[in-house]
Nucleic acid binder design. Structure first.
Lengths: 115, 115
DNA sequence: AGGCATACTATGTGCGGCATAGTGTCAGCG
DNA sequence: CGCTGACACTATGCCGCACATAGTATGCCT
């Protein structure tokens, strides 16, 4: 991970990916770039993080893949499965609860971090 | 982990502990209970998670320990070191950036999670 | 023609979270 | 007055994720 640097997104990474796929299918390289762009580099994970994650999500049935050979380069498009949607919904709740818990400890102080 | 169940707090756990220790020294068992109570069970980590974490933080110089034998039971009090404060400050920023990034993906939607 | 961006695959390592297990003490209850 | 359970810490080991590294191959730009 680039900016978040470390252990902070053990689960955060995969939720982010599932969330991206909620809108429609994407291929690996595209996901890496979208995460980088849309989170201002914070969730910029490398390919070496994303691809194994995708394989993992696929093996668990949360995403499904489809090869597209029509374009210039072969691309493997991933989409959310029904189980993936459930997983996303469940994980989003967990994420929310976690942020609430952290806030109750005084973390994520909205100001004071603006250095 | 109890409620947050899974991989969501790779770093979150230790930040939470550091944050607790910011107020003053605490012993292990007390930390477990404080986390459980103050986060409504969300960050309820067991002893098997906390103690190794404390050893880890101690080995890195972020916390320091002191034995107190005066009470009924011997207690090992942990306190934040100067480095620990720096670490906490740094991690809090990272945590904040992470939540911002997740929000920008549409996660932590304040409503819609109230199911 | 060569280098860079694109796009995916493969392999291996380190470490954090956690389960399990074990030690000992103190307090309350019958 | 012995038992049970809450208190408090230590020790060991597994598993899976994040990540580094490396390798393959194609298309585009200059």
């Amino acid at each position: 991970m680039a900016n978040v640097d470390g252990e902070f997104l053990r689960g955060a990474g995969s939720v982010a990916v599932l969330k991206l796929l909620e809108r429609g299918e994407m291929y690996g390289y595209e996901i890496v770039e979208a995460l980088e762009r849309r989170t201002d580099g914070v969730l910029a994970m490398g390919q070496s993080t994303l691809y194994p994650m995708l394989y993992n999500l696929e093996s668990k049935g949360f995403v499904a893949a489809r090869w597209d050979e029509t374009g210039a380069r072969p691309r493997k498009y991933y989409r959310l499965t029904a189980d993936g949607r459930k997983k996303l919904s469940s994980d989003a709740k967990i994420w929310h609860r976690l942020t609430v818990a952290m806030e109750s400890l005084g973390l994520t102080s909205v100001q004071g971090v603006l250095a």
